[in-house]
Nucleic acid binder design. Structure first.
Lengths: 235, 235
DNA sequence: TGTACATCAGTGAACGCGCGTTCACTGATGTAC
DNA sequence: TGTACATCAGTGAACGCGCGTTCACTGATGTAC
């Protein structure tokens, strides 16, 4: 416990309290969700008094917003990396992205909860106000993935949303314990892989649709630029 | 406000407090989520003192559990109704179910939040303990939908999970304000319809899979029995 | 190189608040006789 | 048909608790001279 005490703490000054608080918040949000998250407990875990966080964050919400923002950035980074993995065609690149998405949701429930759990079962008073910018990054990344693979504009975007929704749905149902975690054809990753493949194959909706240009064997000529460059923010 | 006061309240005894509390809880959970939900406020809205709910529910969680349970029952009812709509083949029946799912999530954010929001960003200490039975109902309904349409067993179940995950993903992303609510090809219902069609068409996963038996024009001979009959519970 | 001082990042005590829950009580209801 | 009484569903006051936030403060740090 108290992850950073002893290691970083050197007396009166913490040294890296901001980071320690973000990490504690990630852990707590993973356990209790962003609504159940509790600032005093985060301070305790960081080994400081409950007033100390106010040196670094305006209030409780600001810390959660920071976690959310970092979550979007990290997810964007991972998706981009998956997409850029060399030697893949459009099919497999998409498959890698899907896998990366599930991995992120599983490995980083704190981030994931901060990013998405606020908007479920709650009227979105402020639809991820601060997170919006970070989400735009993600959306741009997804949209950009599709550019050049298809002449008709609307279709790739719709497909991107479908893949995202399927990934998100599987991730959240799994987290809620409503999906079997193993099973011949029903393990989460298999569900996602087969689903994405089906979406790609059946692309374009009910009646319509040319096939995805590079459906089989197409190798991307140009690596899409990382959308991270716009809002870039390392930690 | 105070939905039931004046209408039903006739003096010292409320008359129908249990229902009034459930309804207040639905409204509050819709606004603040199950974690932000607050028992005292629910009592206030029902026009009774904050101690009164304990005549009907063991504690706060019991009320939320009741809402969750009713939500699963209601969703099951709606999905069954959509599936049973006469004159549809397997394709359109599935489409109706998808639409019913989205409608439910939109119209009943209180139910939906109680059913699913607990499991997001939180380690599921008790994976919908009480809701489990109700969920089994839902799962059985979905599974049963597929029986008889396909000889290979595992496939329909996988497909059911995919359709469910896609629906759930779209519903939650929409609720979080992360999906465009309108748009040529990207309105939620269009995303879902096209996605379900693609899943049905591309069924069976990456390399495999015979087509869905009744893919076009198949009319179900037998209406599947309502799974409601098992746990049936009217309100 | 040493000193004075501004600035920064913490402390710890206290506040106000609202929530979940309990408890002794009281008013209403229905039923046995 | 009327009365006595058990049972039920509320009240209202109080509790303990924990959380978010504020405030005057103090110890550490770094920089101008």
């Amino acid at each position: 416990m108290t992850a950073s005490r002893g290691k970083h703490r050197q007396g009166y000054h913490h040294g890296n309290l901001r980071e320690a608080l973000v990490n504690a918040a990630r852990k707590l949000i993973a356990e209790r969700g962003p609504v159940g998250f509790n600032l005093a407990e985060a301070a305790r875990q960081a080994g400081v008094s409950s007033a100390a966080p106010y040196r670094h964050f305006a209030d409780r919400d600001a810390l959660i917003a920071e976690v959310r923002q970092r979550g979007f950035a990290e997810l964007g980074r991972r998706l981009t990396a998956a997409w850029r993995r060399p030697g893949s065609n459009a099919d497999t690149a998409f498959r890698h992205m899907g896998k990366a998405y599930l991995t992120f949701a599983r490995e980083e429930p704190g981030y994931y909860g901060a990013m998405f759990a606020t908007g479920i079962g709650r009227k979105s008073q402020h639809p991820s106000r601060r997170g919006q910018g970070a989400f735009d990054t993600l959306e741009a990344a997804i949209a950009r993935l599709m550019v050049g693979t298809e002449e008709r504009r609307g279709i790739p975007r719709a497909l991107a949303y479908q893949v995202w929704a399927l990934s998100h749905g599987i991730a959240t149902l799994l987290a809620a314990g409503l999906l079997p975690s193993a099973g011949a054809r029903t393990s989460p990753s298999k569900l996602l892989r087969a689903g994405v493949a089906a979406l790609l194959r059946g692309m374009g909706g009910a009646g319509a649709g040319p096939r995805l240009a590079g459906r089989r064997g197409m190798t991307r000529k140009t690596s899409p630029r990382s959308p991270q460059q716009k809002t870039g923010r390392r930690r």
